[in-house]
């Protein structure tokens, strides 16, 4: 292929379909947002469990900590593309299908939750021991400590954790797209790669980058807003 050929493959606008891009973008955003809602809730819970088990000085705690920790490490370590294949029967049982944007959500949640949970655990550990002692001394209950101290004092780290996880998640949605999960990934793969329309792939890439940058920008903005240290 000569230079002109390369130029033509990347910049052949004739096949660009605005409607398709719109749906694909919506699908990507939908997958990301819905999955992130689950990931944040479950990740906070799992992170809190890990944090509490690590802190407790009961003998059984360290055993349970290892179990939970190993399990979450396993799910975090399985390459996403393989996890999604492994989960096909599960997804089918749960949603009736393993195709489409909705079907990608279980896999996205399962792989991102342990990741966020680990960030949550680290965020909680960084909360000043002295502040926790002070709250204890004031007669705060465990729930009050979680609610009023841990969550409040680790806010910047929790938010930047959400930013990082969301960006990773966008990458995952693209992979999910390649196995029929919908969204910009699917558009880039099927339209672009399978049908030789690299212009579409290029545009899908640019859109993904724009989404990632916007998320990063919002995340950084929020962190500076809440960080009063």
């Amino acid at each position: 292929m000569n230079n002109k050929g390369i130029k033509a493959t990347y910049f052949d606008f004739s096949n660009l379909d605005a409607e398709k891009f719109k749906t694909a973008t919506q699908e990507t955003l939908m997958m990301t947002i819905v999955s992130m809602v689950f990931v944040i809730v479950l990740g906070l819970l799992l992170g809190l469990i890990l944090y509490s088990l690590a802190k407790s000085n009961k003998k059984s705690s360290s055993f349970f900590y290892s179990v939970v920790s190993i399990l979450s490490n396993i799910f975090r370590s399985i390459p996403f593309i393989i996890l999604i294949l492994l989960l096909i029967p599960f997804t089918k049982a749960l949603l009736g299908t393993f195709l489409g944007a909705k079907a990608a959500i279980p896999a996205l949640v399962i792989s991102a939750t342990p990741f966020y949970a680990r960030l949550v655990e680290i965020a909680f550990r960084e909360v000043d021991e002295g502040v926790l002692e002070a709250a204890d001394g004031m007669g705060a209950s465990k729930l009050e400590i979680v609610w009023k101290i841990l969550l409040a004092e680790s806010r910047p780290a929790l938010i930047s954790g959400i930013t990082v996880t969301t960006i990773t998640m966008i990458g995952f949605t693209a992979m999910a797209g390649a196995v029929g999960g919908g969204g910009l990934g699917q558009l880039a793969y099927y339209q672009g790669y399978m049908q030789g329309d690299l212009t579409t792939t290029l545009f899908a890439t640019i859109l993904i980058l724009v989404i990632v940058f916007i998320i990063q920008w919002i995340g950084d903005l929020l962190v500076t807003r809440v960080d009063k240290r």
Binding site: A134, G137, M138
Partner: peptide, 16 residues
Amino acid sequence: RKDIGMIFQHFNLLWS
């Protein structure tokens, strides 16, 4: 404990 106040060397205030 609510009837006992406590202060600390490093103040232990919530920065948030």
